[in-house]
């Protein structure tokens, strides 16, 4: 490239969209919406052994206004669904949702009047994490899938132009 050869190693040329995606991918700030045992596994993922900060996510934010990934970990009752939707609306764009565990994704074993049967009925979920609860490795795989997806987005285009998330080894074994 011309600039690098002219000015040396201190210059790097790239496309603006790639630069934006590089930044977004490697600095995800999760909001932990933990309501059940999945939140314990989420905490284990954040702790020293699994250390989610290796993926640029060490900044867990407890305010939706400072976060861009909503990790819903646990069952969502009907009383909590308006709260969850309000939290999602308060998050700045661009924003993504990870539905962690069987309960958040489908209602799990709680097929009752009080539990929402999957948050994806009312919220746009990007990645689902299977398990009851999922182990930290599964959550890390899901978040890496989300990173791949974000990296493939066109940051200037409409939302529909995003490619589908690449199917990782864990999801493949389910299919």
């Amino acid at each position: 490239m011309g600039l690098e050869s002219e000015f040396g190693q201190f210059f790097l040329t790239t496309k603006l969209g790639d630069l934006i995606n590089w930044g977004r991918t490697n600095s995800l700030w999760p909001y932990p919406f933990g309501t059940a045992c999945c939140a314990i596994e989420l905490m284990a993922t954040l702790a020293a052994k699994y250390d989610l900060s290796r993926f640029g996510m060490e900044v867990i934010r407890f305010s939706p206004r400072q976060s861009d990934v909503l990790i819903v970990a646990g069952r969502v009752p009907i009383k909590l669904m308006p709260v969850l939707q309000r939290i999602y609306q308060q998050m700045p764009e661009p924003k993504w949702i990870v539905s962690m565990g069987a309960c958040a994704s489908t209602g799990g074993e709680f097929n009752t009047y009080a539990v929402v049967q999957g948050i994806d009925r009312f919220l746009p979920v990007d990645v689902y994490v299977p398990g009851c609860p999922p182990r930290p490795e599964t959550l890390i795989t899901a978040l890496m899938m989300l990173q791949k997806r974000i990296d493939g987005e066109n940051p200037f285009g409409p939302a529909d132009s995003r490619p589908p998330a690449e199917i990782g080894p864990l999801a493949q074994s389910h299919a």
Binding site: I78, M81, P82, Q85, Y88, Q89, Y113, A114, V115, V116, Q117, R121, F122, L123, P124
Partner: peptide, 8 residues
């Protein structure tokens, strides 16, 4: 009741 929410 569990279906009665707006879809975002």
């Amino acid at each position: 009741e569990r279906e009665n929410f707006p879809v975002l």
